[in-house]
């Protein structure tokens, strides 16, 4: 089941206005994405880690999320040092480990972890609908927000339908094999999910028209303004600025 394990909580970050969190997460990650110096990269990774701590999230669940990303990063760590070319760091037999590759791979590893952790702490601590409304009030087009929220709402229904079909396939003794019959069954299943999804979309649209839907979407969400929000934004901008300074001082 798709879940939002981080969206429940009562930390300072959870209580901060989602729009402020979104904007600061976005700015921060853009800055981190263009860092090269290891001093500033390590500083930002530590800062992101501190944010995750401040959000009071369950360590195990966070590690699981990070493992997912780092599986991907591992690929870079394995391939880049061998293929990047340039100065040879050291050689093992006929294998050459290139220095620029090692540097690049480490940079990618640090950057991606710092950004993911910041997003876990700042953005995944709000639920999906709040995120949609926050984007809306930041000026994103209605249609986009609408698409966003509907996708979220119906992905669960599609998942349920998938499970239903899968169950009915299983109870009739289906076991996956490398046979034409098996591929045909998978194709039927995927086809059926599409057919059901489009029929569902038609019915949902009808139900919405019955309730006077005319293309525009309204939202009830309101974010009370508070001085703490601005304090948070200032803190985030200041930290981001410090990281830029570090980068300029040690690398630029």
């Amino acid at each position: 089941m798709l879940q939002e394990p981080f969206s429940v909580g009562n930390s300072f970050l959870h209580r901060t206005d989602p729009r402020f969190r979104l904007v600061s997460a976005l700015l921060y990650s853009i800055v981190v994405a263009v860092l090269y110096g290891f001093f500033s990269l390590i500083a930002s990774a530590v800062f992101s880690l501190a944010l995750v701590r401040a959000a009071g999230l369950d360590g195990k669940t966070v590690l699981k999320r990070l493992a997912l990303v780092n599986g991907f990063v591992l690929l870079f760590l394995l391939i880049l040092p061998l293929t990047a070319g340039g100065d040879i760091f050291f050689s093992i037999g006929f294998l050459h480990i290139y220095q620029p590759g090692v540097v690049l791979a480490l940079q990618i590893a640090l950057k991606s972890n710092a950004i993911i952790m910041a997003f876990i702490a700042l953005v995944s601590t709000m639920n999906f609908s709040t995120l949609g409304h926050a984007l809306n009030s930041l000026g994103l087009p209605h249609k986009f927000v609408f698409l966003f929220i509907l996708t979220y709402r119906y992905i669960f229904v599609i998942e349920q339908e998938y499970k239903k079909i899968w169950r009915s396939i299983k109870i009739r003794g289906f076991s996956p094999k490398t046979t034409l019959h098996c591929y045909k069954t998978y194709a039927y299943m995927i086809g059926m999910i599409f057919v059901k999804a489009s029929a569902r979309a038609e019915r949902v649209y009808r139900a919405m028209r019955c309730r006077g839907f005319n293309g525009s979407f309204y939202t009830l969400a309101e974010f009370p303004s508070s001085g703490k929000n601005w304090l948070f934004l200032f803190f985030m901008l200041f930290s981001t600025f410090l990281i830029i300074l570090m980068e300029l001082y040690f690398y630029g």
Binding site: F128, I149, R153, R203, A207, M208
Partner: peptide
């Protein structure tokens, strides 16, 4: 499920 499409 056809009628309810909003998150909350």
């Amino acid at each position: 499920d056809d009628q309810l499409f909003s998150p909350t």
